[in-house]
Amino acid sequence: MSWLNDREALLSQVRAQMHEKRYQHTLGVAETARQLALQYGADPDKAELAGFLHDYCKCWPVERMRDVLIRHDLPADLLNGDKELWHSFAGAIVIQTEMNVSDPDIIQAVRYHTTGRDGMTLLEKIVCVADYIEPNRIFPGVETIRSLASQDLDKALAQALGSTIQHLIQQKKTVYPLTLLAYNDLVSGLDT
């Protein structure tokens, strides 16, 4: 992969998009994604790159993300939904248009790392789980998800998405439809 030849330039470009705490999170996601890829048989370089890029737009002003989403005709339900989801969809566009990332696996992993979707690929699952469990994350239930991730990626992701859904319900916030579809898809394939 070409980014391996200029890793420092890539990291510098990523770092310029975010504050230090978000950058440290990004490094944690990239490393965790690489480890999970090695464990579960995905391409570790793709996983690491998707980890580096997953929050590329996270610290952008919402107006800037909205402009990207509108210019690229993304679904109205996304624009009308929780702004916390925007960065992943905007990021998938921006890494293509500004960073010349053309690998559809990496683009999709960035796009769905916050919402999930039904029929997630292995790489998408890895980046999504890595985002939940990277070492800097501290929240109730994270150790359970980490433990599950070491044994069964689908169970870990189902637990993570289930926790997110419960949290959103408790906060009286909407649950994005793709997240429900992802959760249902995962639990329907699990042994009970």
Rank of each mutant, 00 (worst) to 15 (best):
E134S: 07
H54I: 12
R111W: 13
C128N: 08
S102F: 07
D131G: 13
L74V: 12
G81E: 12
R111E: 11
D73S: 07
L78Y: 00
D77M: 09
E84G: 15
A42M: 00
E124R: 07
Q108Y: 13
V62E: 14
L53Y: 01
T115A: 03
T97H: 08
I95L: 05
V62S: 14
H87Q: 09
G41E: 08
Y112L: 15
H87Y: 07
Q39E: 14
I106T: 01
G91D: 08
P61H: 07
V127Q: 10
A42G: 05
C59L: 02
I107Q: 10
V62F: 14
S102G: 12
N80K: 12
D67N: 13
C128I: 00
N80Q: 12
I107S: 10
E134P: 06
P104Q: 09
I95K: 01
A76C: 01
I107E: 00
W60L: 00
I95W: 06
V127R: 05
A50E: 11
A76K: 14
R64V: 05
I70P: 02
V110H: 05
L79M: 11
P75M: 04
Y56T: 03
T115K: 10
P75T: 07
R64T: 15
I106R: 03
R71G: 07
L74I: 09
H113I: 14
W60Q: 08
F89T: 03
V101W: 06
V94E: 02
Q39S: 11
L79K: 11
R71C: 13
V110A: 05
K83P: 01
D77Q: 13
L85S: 12
D82M: 08
D77T: 10
D118Q: 15
D55N: 10
D118C: 15
V62M: 14
L79T: 05
F52P: 04
K46S: 03
Y112P: 15
T121H: 04
I95C: 09
D82T: 09
Q108K: 03
E84V: 13
E124V: 06
G116I: 06
E63V: 01
P104I: 10
V101Q: 05
M65W: 13
D55K: 07
M65H: 00
R111D: 09
G91W: 08
S102H: 02
Y56M: 13
I133C: 15
I106L: 04
C59N: 13
G91E: 07
Y132Q: 13
G51K: 00
F52V: 07
S88K: 01
D43S: 08
L78H: 01
V94Y: 04
K125E: 04
H113V: 04
K83E: 00
W60H: 07
N100H: 11
D103T: 04
Q108A: 14
V127M: 04
G116S: 06
E48V: 09
G41Q: 14
E63G: 06
P75D: 13
